[in-house]
């Protein structure tokens, strides 16, 4: 039995007197998508940033199983190792695509950057990989030389996804990946994500306030309130049969379609 891909234990973070995360613990298997659901201020984004190593925790540990099988606590990684991980084995899809893209570099350059960062030196092959990925995220090939500053919101998000997935990462963090997009655009993006997660066997941690996103993308979910996990389990179970009162409130608050 393989160890879990990611193991989070006793994670804590405060800002002055505000508790952002209290004693968070969970595990993530390879190929598993986990949704972290909660309202604004629940601590879900802080948790995502803690696990991805973008924020330092006050206490607790995040252990990641590297490609060679070794389980490494993130705090033991050097800055060089952490940044290498972010470039190859991990992806981070930001809610605001302009944070995760070089807005004035062409789409091809954006997708190709990771390949060049790990040693890609053949322009033709890099360009071909970029075109391949543009097709997979359903962006027209003729847009390959346009910068994302000329793209619509939905297209930027799809480009961001392509940029993250081109090196075949095993774990992708997503912060409200469909936030701020039109409903029809959201639906298309969710479909695309679902397909990619399945095809590539990606593990994913998806932060969202939208239960529909959780339902569509994740196998399991955590429900957060005021820095604590108040319920967790299989997504379908939690959404169809919520146990905690707060979860029941969340589920019942979703407008009927």
């Amino acid at each position: 039995m393989m160890a879990p891909l990611l193991s989070v234990r006793g994670l804590n973070k405060r800002y002055g007197s505000i508790v952002a995360c209290r004693d968070i613990a969970f595990e993530l298997e390879e190929g598993e998508a986990l949704a972290i659901v909660g309202e604004s201020g629940s601590g879900k984004t802080t948790l995502l940033n803690l696990v991805a190593g973008a924020l330092a925790a006050d206490s607790g540990e995040v252990v990641y199983r590297m490609r060679d099988g070794a389980a490494r606590p993130l705090s033991s990684l050097s800055e060089a190792e952490r940044r290498a991980l972010m470039r190859t084995d991990w992806g981070f899809v930001h809610q605001d695509a302009s944070r995760g893209l070089r807005m004035n570099v062409s789409a091809g350059g954006n997708i190709g950057e990771r390949l060049m960062a790990i040693g890609g030196r053949h322009y033709g092959r890099i360009r071909a990989a970029a075109l391949d990925w543009l097709a997979r995220v359903e962006i027209a090939a003729e847009r390959v030389d346009d910068p994302p500053s000329t793209y619509s919101g939905g297209m930027r998000q799809r480009l961001q996804i392509a940029r993250n997935l081109v090196t075949g990462p095993r774990l992708v963090f997503m912060d409200e990946p469909t936030g701020g997009l039109d409903v029809s655009v959201q639906a298309r993006l969710l479909d695309l994500l679902r397909g990619l997660i399945a095809d590539m066997g990606l593990a994913a941690i998806i932060v969202t306030h939208d239960l529909a996103v959780a339902r569509l993308l994740s196998h399991r979910m955590l429900v957060m309130k005021q820095g604590e996990v108040i319920e967790s389990g299989l997504t379908d179970r939690v959404l169809d049969d919520p146990q905690a009162p707060y979860t029941q409130l969340l589920v019942s608050s979703v407008l009927a379609a």
Partner: peptide, 22 residues
């Protein structure tokens, strides 16, 4: 400084890529 320390030079090739594309 950090980029040199970690030999993170991908961004240099991005610039060259952009030149060829353009």
């Amino acid at each position: 400084r950090t980029m040199h320390a970690l030999a993170e030079y991908g961004v240099m090739h991005v610039k060259l890529y952009e030149d060829i594309a353009r």
